[in-house]
């Protein structure tokens, strides 16, 4: 469904663009004709699919890192100690900062390779995850925890288990939502300085004023993002189904 929706939106967008082109009489140089775009999409698919998959892999890696990092920090910060309050305050304040602005610094220090792309993807999707995990991990589920607390069975693992289970829907939603941010982060990194990935292909196409190539990139990125989100949603459904069975 998600894939179909994306394809429909892309097609509508393409038709509007062509409508504007013929309506306003724009040249083929500015907006290429439909057949040129479709040729680019279907005949040169390898030029776009491979970089898109490369971007997707980096986004998945960055997203995974962000999830692990956010879970560790939220777990440490849930206790209500001075350190945890500092971490919470810092997280709330930092999430208001446009972290993408520090991407150039990452490239300066770490170069234009995989590490920089991975790190930027992680940074971009990290804060929404952290805030959600902080909320879930530090909010007691009194009606479930009460018994364990009274009988001395509420250790950290049980506490987190209860809170995660009770907020599974919320966690799956934020993980899926932040996956898009991971894709955005990776593409932004590739736009800026990387020499691989679909962002880099778009940057090259931009320098050449090649709108057909840019549109092809958008299609393949969209397909990869949709697949990524579909995969996460499917995974979430499987986990929920197993736990609720």
């Amino acid at each position: 469904m998600r894939l179909f929706q994306f394809l429909m939106i892309f097609l509508i967008g393409l038709l509007i663009l062509e409508g504007v082109k013929y309506g306003a009489g724009f040249s083929d140089y500015l907006i290429p004709p439909l057949n040129e775009i479709t040729t680019m999409i279907f005949k040169k698919w390898r030029n776009f699919l491979m970089p898109s998959l490369n971007t997707l892999l980096v986004a998945i890696g960055g997203h995974f890192l962000a999830i692990v990092l956010a879970a560790i920090v939220a777990f440490t910060a849930r206790s209500g100690s001075v350190l945890s309050n500092i971490v919470k305050t810092a997280a709330y304040n930092l999430q208001a900062y446009p972290v993408v602005a520090i991407a150039p610094l990452v490239f300066i220090f770490l170069g234009d390779g995989l590490t920089s792309r991975l790190l930027i993807a992680t940074i971009i999707c990290y804060f929404p995850l952290l805030l959600n995990f902080l909320g879930v991990f530090s909010e007691p589920v009194l009606d479930v925890e009460h018994f364990f607390k009274q009988t001395g069975r509420l250790d950290s693992i049980m506490e987190i288990k209860i809170r995660v289970f009770e907020n599974l829907e919320k966690i799956v939603t934020v993980i899926t939502g932040s996956a898009t941010l991971a894709m955005v982060g990776t593409i932004v990194a590739e736009f800026l300085a990387a020499t691989m990935g679909i962002g880099y292909v778009i940057r090259k196409a931009l320098y050449q004023n090649n709108l057909a190539a840019i549109l092809s990139c958008l299609l393949y990125i969209g397909l990869c993002s949709s697949l990524f989100l579909l995969g996460l949603e499917w995974l979430g459904k499987i986990i929920k189904k197993r736990l609720m069975a």
């Binding site: 009606d143 018994f147 288990k161 289970f165």
Partner: peptide
């Protein structure tokens, strides 16, 4: 102390 809105873990 036990009360009526308590829940058992769902897993």
């Amino acid at each position: 102390l036990s009360y009526n809105t308590e829940r058992l873990p769902g897993w």
